[in-house]
């Protein structure tokens, strides 16, 4: 698989470490009343769809940036690559 890195251009997926569902960006609020239940879901449950999947790839063998890759799990076709930083900021995660 070739991942089209937003800064570096097309890179071999073997340079990356796969870290799973991009929803992991949305760490729950540790002060919420049901924080334990939320963190259990966050830590252990996954959607695991057959089809489009947004997922985190870490460019460990490159510039060490985190990417959000949209990839079809039935064909491995990659349709979108974003910097995880941009995704997180757009969701209000990082100030």
């Amino acid at each position: 698989m070739i991942i089209n890195h937003p800064l570096l251009g097309p890179r071999d997926s073997a340079e990356f470490t796969y870290m799973g569902d991009a929803r992991l960006i949305n760490r729950p609020d540790w002060q919420a009343d049901d924080a334990v239940a939320q963190f259990t879901d966050y830590g252990y449950l996954r959607d695991n769809p057959a089809g489009a999947h947004r997922e985190l790839w870490f460019h460990e063998g490159g510039d060490r940036s985190w990417l959000v890759v949209t990839r079809d799990t039935t064909t491995h076709e990659i349709t979108n690559v974003e910097l995880a930083r941009d995704v997180a900021r757009a969701e209000g995660r990082s100030k």
Binding site: S13, N48, T73
Partner: peptide, 9 residues
């Protein structure tokens, strides 16, 4: 990586 493709790389 997540896959249902029954083929790898």
């Amino acid at each position: 990586y997540n896959s249902y493709a029954q083929r790898g790389n």
